[in-house]
């Protein structure tokens, strides 16, 4: 009798694959906006050609630039004037400490952020112009010299005090880039810091109240309390998160979320942090997966040999 099994198998596999293609890749392609990564080059912002001078940058940051009026720089001993909750009451969100902004953010983005925060952050629909609202971070209009040179100097200074790229951990990148607005419950991260393990329930509740107060300020600033990102790596996926960070307006026109402005390297660190939160066991999955696949193949080989042995007498 002719063996029809290969053709039957081919038919089953064919229909299964067609079904899979239509229901998964094709349907998701139709349902979701396809946004390609721009590799964090911020092409809309013109390049700053000038070479920065660290010493002059330091003077500007501490002096005319007035950065330290709102921002702390822990690494040079400038501690925050107010705690996060009080700061957020004033500004809507706690202004970041500037110690490591030079390594986490893209340098061109930083320069433009100092020059014109509304444009760099892509929040024209919320601040300035016709809206009549002022952005909490003031634009730097220059100290009298060449503006581009001054911007380059300030960025050079910020880069000089920042930690080295290889020292940046996923947590540091996440906290500075996302963590002042987004909580990550599964990593015990709140917008005002990692929640410690309190011995006394009173202290734990006091911390929670601080977090809630901070969240209230955020709500006033952004309209909602930004989402907890614990499971975002599973609910949104790497590509979505990465391109969303690059420019939130691409996905959600008019969203209150500003463009983050991170460098490509920092974006990778942020993704890694979210993987640790929502896909914690991925390394173990790979490892166990390999062993199980090898076991399955060996099982299949033995099963095949057994079948041949048993069926020898049946033909």
């Amino acid at each position: 009798m002719k063996n029809k099994e290969p053709i039957i198998l081919a038919v089953v596999v064919f229909f299964t694959l067609v079904l899979y293609y239509l229901v998964e890749p094709y349907a998701h392609h139709v349902m979701h906006k396809q946004i390609a990564s721009e590799n964090f080059v911020y092409a809309d912002l013109p390049a700053i050609e000038k070479q920065g001078d660290v010493a002059r940058g330091a003077q500007l940051v501490m002096g005319v630039g007035a950065c330290v009026g709102c921002h702390s720089i822990n690494v040079v001993g400038l501690a925050p004037v107010m705690d996060a909750v009080t700061s957020a009451k004033g500004y809507g969100v706690n202004p970041p400490d500037l110690s490591n902004v030079g390594v986490i953010y893209d340098e061109k983005f930083l320069a433009h952020l100092i020059k014109n925060p509304i444009e760099a952050l892509k929040v024209e629909h919320k601040y300035g112009g016709a809206t009549g609202l002022t952005h909490p971070m003031m634009a730097f209009s220059g100290a009298g010299g060449d503006l581009d040179q001054e911007l380059a100097d300030m960025v050079a200074y910020l880069k000089s005090i920042a930690m080295k790229q290889e020292e940046v951990t996923p947590k540091i990148a996440f906290e500075l880039a996302c963590g002042r607005c987004h909580a990550v419950n599964y990593e015990k991260w709140t917008q005002i810091g990692t929640k410690p393990n309190f011995k006394d329930e009173k202290d734990a509740l006091a911390f929670d109240i601080q977090t809630l107060e901070y969240a209230d300020s955020l709500k006033g600033y952004l309209g909602i309390v930004p989402a907890d990102l614990s499971m975002y790596i599973r609910s949104r996926g790497e590509h979505y998160i990465s391109t969303f960070m690059e420019n939130p307006q691409n996905y959600l026109k008019g969203t209150a979320m500003p463009r983050v402005g991170v460098s490509a390297e920092s974006a990778e660190k942020v993704i890694e942090y979210l993987k640790d939160a929502g896909d914690t066991k991925r390394a173990q999955r790979e490892e166990v997966g390999k062993s199980v696949m090898i076991y399955s193949i060996i099982f299949a080989i033995f099963a095949l040999l057994w079948k041949k042995e048993v069926w020898k007498d049946l033909h």
Binding site: R285, E286, V288, G289, V292, M293, S296, I297, F299, A300, I301, F302, A303, L304, W306, K307, E309, V310, W311, L314
Partner: peptide, 25 residues
């Protein structure tokens, strides 16, 4: 058993490769 079951198990063997590929990857 064991005649038909040996064939069952052969198919199960192939199926398990497919199944665990899906589970892990």
């Amino acid at each position: 058993a064991n005649d038909f079951m040996s064939k069952d198990m052969m198919v199960v063997g192939v199926y398990l490769i497919f199944f665990f590929y899906l589970v892990f990857y």
